[in-house]
Write a protein that binds this DNA or RNA. Structure first.
Lengths: 247, 247
DNA sequence: CGACCTGTTGACACATATCAAAGGTCGTGG
DNA sequence: CCACGACCTTTGATATGTGTCAACAGGTCG
């Protein structure tokens, strides 16, 4: 069936989606919206898009038209500068938004790449602005989401500016753990979707340093590490390590 | 006149301000807004606030109600974590907005401190949301401003994660230069409003390292440094240094 | 004028980067 | 089903950039 294959290759589907039925309501934009308004929202998210591991959701330099809500899967965003240096600026999971960076200049400023097979809701930005002029709670919630992104970035700046390697990794793992927990998964046991190199890039460290820190945590009984499978054995220990004063 | 002194101490004035007459229009929120709408904006910014050097505009933990547009002066924002570490997250100048971090949780997450005598317009946030439901261009411009803040933070993350000390300082100086230029000041000669320690905190470096980098730049003929007075002698040199591959 | 704050410079310590080698894991194709 | 190659991870030895500690210089303000 050539048509089916072609469709798959496009990795783009026009599916009538329904926020009113979506089980991500608590995480995604429509939080706290009145039932009557939810119908309007259904129009907002008109299409979904499926991506396979390694696919780009968007690339730096591409025109901006939509933001994306992750229905399932896992992403990274990274920026690249001329001289070849790059850095992972974030890892995003189910219920989180992608593409907010593109609003300012109508052009995406980073790459968004799926780290596992994923599905996103495509939210045309002008449409979102229109709707948020009608629905106060949507407008306010969207502003909160953008602001939260700013606060998150400040946290990363703090991490990069003041923490040492093991503190950074501890902070990273605790953050992941908490986000998995918020989604109903085990906060203690999870699979990393990213390589040591990607973790290092995010944390401003080399992959060898990340690897050594993992080994150290394992020696100290804080973690059980098996490849990308992580089990947190001592959350408090990690937390103490993270907030430990620079010696 | 005791009343006048008391008023000064309050550092808070209720002044009828007018965006329609403000010469910051090109930098601040009202960019590109129709004359008829500008009248509505005048209601938005009902008060101004004067701060002396060292005053806090707001503190982490305080309830959030307004954002602030800088009419004149210079600010820093910083975050503080329990264990005593802190970091400067940004320096803000005329025409830039402060307080966006507070939207997400209705509580400010950082401190905003005046680095010189300053004046800000107080913009009640609910009022801004109301008005941006009526004025599309205001809404869109506000979204752009928030997005730009996210992009800026990514730039800082890049700096902290991948650049070495001298590259960071070069990037910092070029950024300041460009912002002064955009405001009609000399891009080559300006006074730093912040201490070496504050620069170091922002750049994730110790003040001694910042000082040494300044000295090096001076030796190399890139800068003339006299205390906090900076003259850039070789912009291209700085730019090359900034984008230089890690050796 | 003297106290204090800020900045500069030097010597040394230390965390992390760099370079290198080897072992594991996974997917693919024979 | 096994074998191969590509990629990822771990670990060790060494190099290096920045932090730390300390002394001192210069400017500012009471």
């Amino acid at each position: 069936m050539p048509t089916s294959a072609a469709t798959a290759r496009l990795a783009f589907e026009v599916v009538k989606t329904a926020c009113s039925n979506c089980n991500l309501r608590e995480l995604c934009l429509p939080i706290g919206i009145e039932p009557e308004d939810l119908k309007k929202l259904d129009e907002l998210v008109s299409t979904r898009r499926r991506l396979k591991r390694g696919d780009h959701l968007y690339r730096a330099g591409q025109g901006f038209a939509s933001i994306y809500a992750i229905r399932s899967g896992f992403f990274k965003t990274d920026v690249l500068i001329e001289d070849g240096r790059d850095q992972v600026t974030g890892f995003q999971m189910t219920g989180e938004l992608l593409g907010l960076d593109g609003i300012s200049s109508e052009v995406h400023t980073c790459n968004a790449i799926a780290l596992e097979d994923s599905e996103v809701c495509v939210i045309p930005f002008l449409h979102l602005e229109g709707l948020s002029r009608q629905i106060h709670t949507l407008q306010h919630h969207f502003h909160k989401v953008m602001s939260r992104e700013i606060v998150r970035d400040h946290g990363v700046m703090m991490l990069l500016g003041t923490m040492r390697a093991e503190e950074r990794l501890a902070a990273f793992l605790l953050n992941l753990s908490q986000r998995f927990k918020a989604r109903g998964y085990s906060p203690a046991e999870f699979n990393l979707r990213m390589s040591r190199d990607e973790i290092g890039s995010y944390l401003g460290l080399k992959l060898e340093t990340v690897s050594r820190a993992f080994s150290r945590f394992q020696e100290d009984g804080l973690l059980a590490v098996h490849q990308r499978k992580i089990r947190i054995l001592n959350t408090d220990g990690l937390r103490k390590l993270m907030t430990h004063q620079r010696s």
